[in-house]
Design a binder for these strands. Structure first.
Lengths: 246, 246
DNA sequence: TTTGGTAATTTGGTCGACAAATGGAGTATT
DNA sequence: AATACTCCATTTGTCGACCAAATTACCAAA
C-alpha cells in the first residue's frame, strides 16, 4: 500500500486532509516550510506533491502568495456518473430514437449497406462479435444523423454501458439469450431507415429499447432486483410508458 | 506567452519533442542530468516537469531505470468535439425537450420554487447573471428528470456551449438582445412543469430552442453566414422542421 | 553454461542558499 | 482624513551539491 514515490504519499495525505475539511475549500494551506516540517520531508518533496495535486486541479499555486484549495472539487470531465442500467437505457431510448428519426431523412446508401452487413454479423455465434456489431450499428446511425453533438452524446452513453461494471453486467445478462429477437428488432429499425421514414425509425428504435428494459426488469438477478426494489413499482410504470410507442 | 513556472515550459518542450517523434513512443528518454544540461535548468525542475507529464499520462517513470514515453497517447475522454452552435442547439432541443417531459411528471414543489426564482433573476440587467440563471434553470430541470445519465448528458452539452469559442460567440450574439423573450419562454416552460403536463413542457422547451435557432440563423454575422452558406438551405429547412412543435 | 556478486548508472530525496514575486504595514503627500 | 507610494517580511521558485535506493550490466567463479 505504500507509495513508491514519497511525494505520492504526501499528496494523498494532503488530499485526505482537504476532503476531511481540515483545509476548507478556498482557504490557503500552510507554507512549504511548515508542511515540510509537519510531514517530515523536504520542501522539494512538498512542492512535488503540490504540483501533482495541482495537475489534478485540487489546489491552485500562486507564486509569492501561497497555495489555495480549489473552490469546487474538480469534476473530472471524463468521469462517468454512477448510473443504473435502467437510467442509461431510458436515456438511450430518448436520444437514439430521435437520432434515428433524424438519420432516416438523410442517411446514405453506403451507410444503409453497412448497417445491413452489421445486422448479418449479429447472428454470429460469437457473443463478443455480436456486441461489437451492435455497437457499430448504433454508432453508424448516430453518425448518419449528421450531428456531431449527438454522435458524442451517444458515444458517451455507450462508454457508460461498457465501462460501468454494474451496467455491463446487467446488459450482459440480458443480451446473451435474446440474440434472435435482437437481430429482428435491428432489422426493423434498418427497414425504416431504408424507407427514409422518420416516424417508423423512431418507433422501431423505441420498441428495441422497450424490449430491452422489459428483459432487464424480468431477467435481473435477485440482488439487483432487491437493489432497485424501492424504485421498482414506479420505475416499471415510468420506464415502460416513457419508452413505449408513441 | 512564457509559462509562469519554469517546469511548465520544460514540460511543454518535452511534450513537443515527443509529438515530433524525436523521442519515439515506448523509448527511454535521456536522464535527468542530461536533460537538465540540455534545457539549462536544474535536475529538480526536470523532475517537476516529468511529474507533471506523468500526471497527464504521457510518460512513465521507473525508479532506477529511467523515464519512458507512454506507448499510446492518452485519448482525453473529456475532450469536446468541434460542434457548431446549430448542431449543439439541435441536440439540446432533442434531449432537453424529452427531459422536460420526464421532469413534468415527477418534479417537486421545491424545484418549482427554485425555477421560479431563477426566472426572476433572468430579468437582471447583468448579462452574466442572466446566463448563469439560464444555466441553473436548465440543469434544475435536468436533475428533476431523476435520471443521472440525462443529467450528465445535458451537463456535457452545456460544457460545449461554454467552452467551445465559436459556439460561445454565437450564443452570446443571440442572447443579449432577446432578454425579455427568453424570460417569457422560460416562464412558459415553468408553467407547463407546474401543471405537471409532459406534452406542454416538451412543446414549450422545443419552442424555446426553435426561437433560439431562428435567432441564430438571422443574427449570425456575415462571415458565419458565408461559412454555412452551402449548408444554409438544407440546414434551415431541416433544423426548423426538426425543432418545430410536434 | 549457469550463477552469484559487484560496480556503474539512474532516479529519489535532502539541505542550504539565493532570486523573484506578493501583500501589507508604515509613511509621506495631498 | 484620504490617498498614493515605498519598503520589507513572507512565500514560492530555482539552483547546485550531496547522499540514498533501485535497477541494470558486467564479469568472474563454480
Amino acid at each position: 500500500m505504500s507509495e513508491k514515490r514519497l511525494f505520492h504519499s504526501v499528496a494523498e495525505q494532503i488530499s485526505d486532509l482537504i476532503d476531511e475539511g481540515v483545509f476548507p475549500l478556498g482557504t490557503r494551506l500552510p507554507g512549504e516550510r511548515e508542511l515540510a516540517e509537519r510531514f517530515g520531508v523536504s520542501r522539494v518533496t512538498i512542492r512535488e506533491a503540490e504540483i501533482a495535486l495541482q495537475a489534478v486541479g485540487k489546489i491552485q499555486i500562486k507564486t509569492g502568495s501561497g497555495v489555495y484549495v480549489s473552490e469546487e472539487l474538480p469534476k473530472d470531465p471524463g468521469q462517468l456518473p454512477d448510473v443504473s442500467a435502467f437510467e442509461l437505457t431510458e436515456a438511450r431510448s430518448m436520444i437514439e430514437s430521435e437520432a434515428a428519426a433524424l438519420a432516416a431523412k438523410v442517411i446514405s446508401d453506403e451507410a444503409l449497406d453497412d448497417l445491413q452487413e452489421l445486422v448479418s454479423q449479429m447472428s454470429a455465434a460469437n457473443d463478443d462479435a455480436a456486441t461489437s456489431a451492435d455497437h457499430a450499428f448504433h454508432m453508424t446511425i448516430a453518425k448518419a444523423s449528421g450531428n456531431k453533438a449527438i454522435v458524442h452524446t451517444i458515444e458517451t452513453l455507450w462508454r457508460m454501458r461498457e465501462e460501468l461494471p454494474k451496467v455491463k453486467k446487467t446488459y450482459g445478462s440480458v443480451c446473451e439469450e435474446d440474440a434472435e429477437s435482437r437481430m429482428r428488432e435491428h432489422q426493423l429499425i434498418l427497414d425504416a431507415l431504408k424507407a427514409h421514414n422518420p416516424d417508423d425509425a423512431r418507433n422501431a428504435m423505441r420498441a428495441h429499447f422497450f424490449r430491452l428494459i422489459s428483459a432487464m426488469l424480468d431477467a435481473t438477478e435477485q440482488e439487483a432486483l432487491r437493489e432497485v426494489q424501492q424504485r421498482a413499482s414506479e420505475s416499471r410504470e415510468r420506464f415502460l410508458t416513457n419508452a413505449n410507442l408513441g
